[in-house]
Design a protein around this nucleic acid. Sequence first.
DNA 1: ATACATGTAACTTTTGTAGTTGCATTGGTC
DNA 2: GACCAATGCAACTACAAAAGTTACATGTAT
Lengths: 134, 134
Amino acid sequence: MKRNSRLSLALHTLSHMAGEPDRVRTSSDIADHAGTNPVVVRRVLGRLREAGLLTSEKGHAGGWRLARKPQEISLADVYLALDERLVASDEISEAPACSVEHALQKRVSGVLEEIEQSLVQKLSETSISEVRDA
Amino acid sequence: MKRNSRLSLALHTLSHMAGEPDRVRTSSDIADHAGTNPVVVRRVLGRLREAGLLTSEKGHAGGWRLARKPQEISLADVYLALDERLVASDEISEAPACSVEHALQKRVSGVLEEIEQSLVQKLSETSISEVRDA
DNA sequence: ATACATGTAACTTTTGTAGTTGCATTGGTC
DNA sequence: GACCAATGCAACTACAAAAGTTACATGTAT
Ligand code: FES
Ligand code: FES
């Protein structure tokens, strides 16, 4: 796992969970399977919990579980939960004093924003349960 | 300049050049203007030269010049010359032994590749001369 | 009480990129 | 020919973002 590893990890994990929705998984199980560290798993899945895609329970027999039916979790849900913005950048234009810079920024940002939207749109058309039979 | 700084630098510079196509600019001039280093400028513009967008001349009175009319250089030309792939990744899937991993990879990569294409398409609709009057 | 899980903060390691330095090469100018 | 000013390029350093790691507090079933 290298680039977009957060997204990879999240999708990978959710895909597995979509297969056996009732099974509870610990961060360690997931980390072992994904070849990473439990803390990293908790960091990533924590985002998904905040977004309402997963639930977690502490203590003995605790762990992670899907918060909804797998059919109701789209790839876009995951993408957005992680605050990924593969295309557009969130940066505020610092000092667009010059008009050329300003025009350029405006035009390019516009295109990127459109593309970002259509990416989310495309991702929303697939659920994590569908992905297994691609 | 932070993220996508290569692309920013390239577009910024070309936009200026589109304004005064006949003027020769040195790496130092450009670097001063963009708040960076001449060597960085040469690295980035070198890519554009390889792609046939710019020419450079050594020696006294040398420097950079547009290789084509500004109307004939699109944002996509620049994007592709820099080998930017904002959306899709070029990585070879390492060991897609597992079927779930495989399916996931296939589906997601597919979407990303589509989006990458439509980004290039959108960028190809604007030339560096148009961008000034946006 | 104990064992096992998450939650989180702080630190270290890794990695990609910009920035820098130094020098060879080329081509005008005197 | 001597000199100056430009690119070309390689090697190194500096920096920042992300992953990975360690340590510990908190919660919960048995
Ligand atoms: S400073 Fe305005 S475009 Fe260069
Ligand atoms: S998807 Fe997890 S190992 Fe195959």
